[in-house]
Write a protein that binds this DNA or RNA. Structure first.
Length: 498
DNA sequence: GCGATCAGTT
DNA sequence: CACAACTGATCGC
């Protein structure tokens, strides 16, 4: 199956390309694969997260036998080094990364009174109390470091294999590993913190390829040197280092791209970045009736417990609730929460339906303007008094905050109706019914959590994979523990049967 | 003051 | 409840 991948002459990324039938590198002592098609249906989802992960961690620190997770995270530039992996980096997952506070970025100052409330106390206590559960040496290091006592130097973070595109000198969303040996092109799938982490104005390790919208954000928000930024238009094929590269719309946040690589030997790789699969992708000329050899898949919600409605349905729901509420209380302020970029359609739809402008503060307006979407730009306004529709940082959407916020608006409004568009909401796990969503109300502040997801649901993933039928799949999310990997593999195998 | 890192928060 | 994606504290330099 996996015949040789021709390595381009200039290609210094020493990637072995042998993958096992699950898309994991051969020789990495992949998962204990005996429990093949076991599904045990839904529901036993709990326990999966923490416990198993801790088990995996314990494994890693103690064992001589290499677990997949250890190998996986410890893997260096070469897949063949997986076996000899050091146990570093098990925490690769998502790190706190650069970027100044978004609140600051959005120009919102935290009221003094919230700075040292019970929250602060709880946090400090939590910090002290923590740090016991997961023994192991690394832990000790960390404690020492906090005390400022003789600490070891931090081992450098190593780029995990799934961020490298074999047979090419490229990586995807790998900016937190310094210079990566042999990497001549650093691709960025989209402008979210956990993907661009490591990028700053000091970046100098090589060219960054991304959509032009993302490119603008890199300059505006992170002051990345333009010398290194290589904007690519969507649906346009580029020849980069002898590889044909095309970015497709990922249906995630603005500027998010799915990246299609065609190697000179004809092999094709598709990296989804973060994406929400949809029917439209099924008809893309690069995907329809074309073989994909390896699919790097955003497996965030690859579990049947993650069911949520189409975005359109959620938007309809939000618009309807808004209308109802305004009918009863015409002087209601409607608030939509959003952190960096993404979920714009929620407030755009309200704006269009109510025929009111959208208030956002200066820094958010600047970012939204940079999208170059006239229908959005044209509706932005700079005075909170002149619109009953405000966009605020997600973290601000709490009863105390909104109550205060209402006061600052000088009686122009008498109540607040707020929406937090989050990916998956627990209330949703019981069913797929939007009507079941109950808001949380305190006084004149009502907050709805709505399942507006910019990642694929389980069924959307299934349909996408069954449509694409790639030769191999490499999951890029939820791979930190064996149980979840096994489960995902089992589903994928099932989908690709016959 | 900046960047990295970790835990915590919603 | 558990998600993704962020904030805040604290370290080194």
């Amino acid at each position: 199956m996996d015949s040789e991948i021709a390595i381009a002459p200039h290609d210094p990324l020493p990637l072995s390309h042998e993958l096992d039938e699950n898309g994991f590198p051969i020789g990495s002592s992949s998962t204990d694969d005996d429990d093949d098609g076991d599904y045990e249906g839904y529901g036993d989802g709990d326990g999966e997260g923490r416990d198993v992960e801790d088990a995996a961690i314990a494994d890693e620190s103690s064992d001589a036998v290499s677990t997949f997770a250890a190998d996986f995270y410890g893997s260096g530039t070469d897949w063949s080094s997986l076996v000899a992996a050091e146990e570093e980096g098990r925490k690769e997952k998502k790190g706190g990364l650069v970027q100044r506070s978004l609140l600051q970025m959005w120009g919102i100052k935290k009221p003094k009174e919230y700075e040292e409330g019970s929250g602060g106390m709880a946090r400090n206590l939590g910090r002290k109390r923590r740090r016991s559960a997961m023994g192991g040496e690394e832990h000790v290091d960390r404690v020492d470091r906090r005390k400022g006592q003789e600490m070891k130097l931090d081992r450098p973070r190593v780029c995990p294999f799934y961020k490298k595109i074999p047979g090419t000198p490229f990586t995807v969303d790998a900016f937190r590993y310094g210079q990566i040996e042999g990497c001549l092109g650093y691709f960025l799938s989209h402008f979210h913190h956990d993907h661009y982490g490591g990028l700053s104005k000091r970046w100098s390790h090589g060219p960054i390829y991304c959509s032009s919208l993302t490119a603008r954000l890199l300059k505006m928000c992170l002051s990345v040197n333009s010398l290194y930024i290589c904007p690519l238009e969507l649906d346009t094929e580029y020849d980069i280092e002898g590889v044909k590269v095309t970015m497709l719309d990922a249906n995630h946040c603005p500027g998010a791209a799915v990246i299609h690589f065609r190697l000179s030997d004809g092999r094709t790789y598709l990296h989804t970045g973060d994406f929400r699969a949809c029917k439209l992708m099924h008809s893309h000329p690069l995907l329809l009736n074309h073989r994909i050899n390896v699919l790097y898949l955003d497996t965030t919600y690859l579990n049947p417990k993650y069911r949520f409605p189409p975005k359109e349905d959620v938007v309809d729901f939000v618009v309807k609730k808004t209308h109802n509420c305004l009918k009863k209380q015409p002087r209601t302020l409607v608030v939509v929460g959003a952190y960096s970029i993404g979920k714009e359609n929620v407030y755009l739809a309200i704006s269009q339906s109510l025929e009111v402008p959208i208030y956002a503060n200066a820094s958010r307006r600047r970012i939204l303007q940079s999208f170059g979407w006239p229908e959005l730009s044209g509706r932005l306004c700079s005075s909170g008094q002149s619109s009953p529709l405000h966009v605020l940082p997600l973290s601000f959407l709490r009863h105390e905050n909104l109550k205060e916020y209402l006061k600052t608006l000088n009686k122009r409004f008498t109540a607040i109706l707020a929406f937090r568009p989050t990916g998956w909401t627990f209330s949703e796990s019981t069913g797929n019914q939007l009507d079941l969503i109950k808001p949380s109300t305190k006084g004149n502040v009502t907050i709805y959590g709505v399942p507006y997801s910019e990642h694929s649901s389980f069924t959307e993933l299934r349909d996408f994979v069954k449509f694409l039928r790639p030769e191999k799949i490499i999951p890029t999310v939820n791979i930190g523990n064996a149980a979840s990997r096994d489960k995902m593999q089992a589903y994928i195998r099932e989908w690709l049967k016959v």
